[in-house]
């Protein structure tokens, strides 16, 4: 059986909020290392990969592999019944029909319990190759979100170009064009504002801003975001979570001229 307790329901609320517009039905794959999720969007352009390690829970118990097939809009409805600071316990039997979510208020005696019916989801699992990215940009997540939002007003696509000069987000649309260039920046007083660019070779790729803006819904989960690029492979946008856990989004590039 599965029993996993999160100190704050907020984490799961935010994760589900961040991915629910991209993927609808998905398996939460539970085993003794934690809870993992991998799902593609309907158009097979983007891939979500989430890992909540067992250390992110306390306690965490999962005796055997359990796939919880859950509709994210149903899960959202139930998670709305939890306060951010509630303790959240997820429980399921070994071959479950339902998953049980329990919310406990930390400072009152309220205890809420909900069951969500599970679905059989036949999901294709993709092997994601280990990649040494040519460029990794670490920047404040709100800054990335703002760039995506601003450029979306002008165009459907953004080119991301990393050179030793910095990283340039540029777009070209009907009303004109725009570009934002960031250089490495280190602020001792305010490390959340740091911008780090690790570059082994220059990269230039074009991506859909609609998808990038969608990924940015995860901005509330982490102060900074890693944007990893290599020529001719999908972009990785990674939000690090506590206890070595993560929420990753992969986006296939736009190609041709």
């Amino acid at each position: 059986m599965l029993e996993a307790r999160l100190e704050q329901a907020e984490l799961l609320k935010k994760v589900v909020d961040a991915i629910k517009d991209l993927v609808q039905d998905c398996n939460f794959d539970c085993n003794d290392s934690g809870v993992a999720l991998q799902a593609m969007d309907n158009s097979h352009v983007a891939l979500v990969s989430m890992m909540l390690k067992s250390e992110a829970f306390s306690p965490f118990r999962c005796d055997r592999n359990i796939a919880l097939g859950i509709n994210l809009s149903s899960l959202t409805k139930v998670l709305r019944c939890a306060q951010n600071n509630d303790i959240l316990t997820v429980k399921a039997e070994d071959a479950p029909d339902v998953v049980n979510l329990m919310f406990e208020s930390s400072d009152s005696d309220r205890l809420s319990e909900y069951d969500i019916k599970l679905m059989d989801i036949d999901q294709e699992h993709l092997g994601i190759p280990e990649t040494e990215y040519a460029a990794t940009v670490t920047m404040p997540s709100p800054e990335f979100q703002r760039i995506c939002r601003d450029l979306s007003a002008l165009s459907e696509s953004v080119s991301i170009e990393c050179t030793k000069e910095g990283v340039k987000f540029a777009c070209n649309g009907d009303i004109g064009s725009g570009a934002v260039t960031l250089r490495s920046h280190s602020d001792v007083e305010n490390p959340d504002q740091n911008i780090k660019i690790d570059l082994t070779e220059p990269v230039a790729l074009t991506f859909s801003l609609k998808y990038l803006s969608n990924f940015c819904k995860a901005s509330g989960l982490a102060k900074s975001v890693n944007i990893c690029l290599s020529n001719e492979v999908p972009l990785l946008v990674e939000y690090g979570l506590a206890a070595n856990s993560y929420l990753r989004f992969y986006l296939a590039p736009k190609i041709g001229d």
Binding site: T206, S208, Y250, K254
Partner: peptide, 14 residues
Amino acid sequence: ARHQTNITSYFCPR
């Protein structure tokens, strides 16, 4: 114009 590629052309089914 550029066209959108699919994620499945980069990552293979396991």
